[in-house]
Write a protein that binds this DNA or RNA. Structure first.
Lengths: 254, 254
DNA sequence: GTATGTGAACGGGTTCACAGCA
DNA sequence: TGCTGTGAACCCGTTCACATAC
C-alpha cells in the first residue's frame, strides 16, 4: 500500500527466484528483531546491514514480492514481517514429525526456532522401544510403528530425518508413502524420492570439509586463491545430490 | 598419471570454483563407498549417479583438479579418493573444538563423520560448571575458562559453535582471538568476524522455512512456480549474512 | 568404440547506476 | 532531497556437444 495504485503483484506474478526465497528467512529474522524493539520503519540500507546482505540485493529481492516500500522513507517493519511470513507460508500451521530421536533429534525437538515460526512438532518417532514414551522437549517419543498413523492423523507434510544413514531411506519411503511431501534430511545419505517430493539436506561433515579446504589455502599458499572469503551460509544449491548410502556413521541410534 | 605428460595442474593453477569445492565432499563420499566395495574404476556417468549430479558437471569439476581420468576407461577410484582428499586438505589432521555441549553439541561430538575425515575433536567446551568433567563421546567437557588455552595448546584452527544465539558472538570473538580462523556456526545469529576468518553457518529454522515455502506452493497453486524441484543440498551460497543477534532461542544452555 | 576433457552457448543471480516517486 | 524500484551490464556456474585420447 502507500501509492495510489494499491500494491500490485509487480514481478510477483510467477516464481520468486530460489536465491531470493533462501534469503527471505534472513530478512524475516532481522525484521522480527526490529519489530521487538518497536522500530517502525527501516531503510534498505539498514535492513541489509542487519541481515548481512547488500542493499541492492535486498531491494531486488523485495521487488519480487511487490512494492512494499515507500520511496524516500523505507519499509514498514510490521507490514514487511507480515508479507514475508505470508510469502513463506508461515502464517499457517505446519505440523512436523521428527524421526530419529538421538542427540540431534532431541536438539531439533528443543529448538525454539521451530515453534516460533509456525512449525509445530506434532510427533517424535524413534525405532528404539526403550525410547517409547520418554518425553523429549515435553513430547513423548512414539515408536516407529506409529509413523504412518501419526502422519495421517496430523496431516503432516513436512518430515525431519535425524536417523543414522542406514535407516534414512527406509524412513523416507515410509514418510512419503504416508503423505509427507517435504523432507529435511540430516542423515549423511542421499534420499531417493518420487517426483513432487522436496528434499533439503544438511550435512555436517560436508560443511567441515569445505572449511578445511579454505583453511588449508590460508596456511599453505599465502592466500593463494585470493584472500578473505565472504561469510557463507548454508543455503540452496541445486545439485540433485545422491550418494551411496551408509558411508559414514550418523549421529544417533534409530 | 596415465598419459605421457605426467598429470599436470591443468586449470588447477589458481582457484577451484566455490561450487566445485562444495561438491568435492560429495564425490569423496561416493568414492569412499566404492573403495570399500573394492571397485577399481568408475566412469563419470556411474560416479555422477552415485553422487547425485550429472556427469558433465562432474567431469568439469574434476577438470579443475587436473586430468585424473583415462579416456575410454574412467577414473581410478583409489587415486581419486587420494587426490580429492588432498585437495580438500583432509590428508592432514584438523583438531576442532566444539563450544556449547547441549544436545546439538553432543550430537556433533558423537558424529562419526568428523573422525573419519581427518577431523579430530580436540576439546569440548561448555560454560556450565555442572558439565565440567562430564564425558561426552568419551571426551571430558572443559569449562569455558579453558577455551583459549585449549585452542593454543592444540593448534586449533577450526571451531564449532553450538551455543545459544546470545552467547555465540562472544564465543566467536574468543575463538578468533585465540587463533581460530574457521568457524562452523550453528547458532541462529550472524557472526561478525575480522578479515581472514571464514564462517560457515547452518541454520535449521531457515531450512524449514524454505521447505514451507515450496510446500505452500504445492498445496495452493497447483504447482504454480513450476512443479517438482530437484533435490536440494545445503551448500555454498554467497550471501554474507548478518543479522541482529538473539532473535530466536537456540538449542542448548551455554 | 568408448569415455574423458573442455571450449562455447546458455541461464540465473548479483551488482550497477539511475529513473521514478514521496 | 532521499530512498525505492528496476533495466542493463556483468559474473559465475551449468549444460551442451564434440574434439581428443585411450
Amino acid at each position: 500500500m502507500a501509492t495510489g495504485r494499491t500494491h500490485r503483484p509487480a514481478n510477483r506474478s510467477r516464481g520468486i527466484p530460489e536465491a531470493t526465497v533462501a534469503r527471505l528467512p534472513l530478512y524475516l529474522r532481522a525484521l522480527t528483531a526490529l519489530s521487538e524493539r518497536s522500530v517502525p520503519t527501516v531503510s534498505s540500507e539498514e535492513l541489509a546491514a542487519a541481515a548481512g546482505v547488500n542493499s541492492a540485493k535486498l531491494r531486488k529481492d523485495f521487488s519480487y514480492l511487490g512494492s512494499y516500500g515507500t520511496r524516500g522513507v523505507g519499509y514498514d517493519v510490521e507490514y514487511l514481517v507480515y508479507q514475508i511470513s505470508r510469502e513463506l507460508g508461515l502464517t499457517q500451521d505446519w505440523p512436523v514429525v521428527i524421526v530419529g530421536i538421538g542427540n540431534l533429534g532431541a536438539a531439533l525437538a528443543n529448538y525454539g526456532g521451530f515453534a516460533s515460526r509456525g512449525f509445530r512438532v506434532a510427533a517424535l518417532i524413534d525405532a528404539d522401544p526403550a525410547m517409547t514414551g520418554k518425553p523429549v522437549a515435553g513430547i513423548p517419543v512414539q515408536h516407529s510403528d506409529e509413523l504412518e498413523r501419526v502422519v495421517r492423523e496430523n496431516g503432516v507434510s513436512i518430515g525431519v530425518i535425524s536417523t543414522p544413514a542406514g535407516a534414512a531411506q527406509q524412513v523416507c519411503d515410509r514418510l512419503v508413502a504416508a503423505g509427507v511431501t517435504s523432507i529435511l534430511n540430516f542423515a549423511p545419505t542421499v534420499l531417493n524420492v518420487p517426483e513432487g517430493v522436496d528434499v533439503r539436506k544438511v550435512d555436517l561433515s560436508i560443511e567441515l570439509q569445505i572449511l578445511a579446504f579454505h583453511e588449508q589455502r590460508k596456511a599453505g599458499g599465502e592466500a593463494v586463491g585470493g584472500g578473505v572469503l565472504p561469510q557463507t551460509t548454508v543455503g540452496r544449491d541445486e545439485s540433485t545430490d545422491q550418494g551411496p548410502d551408509g558411508d559414514m556413521p550418523a549421529v544417533m541410534p534409530a
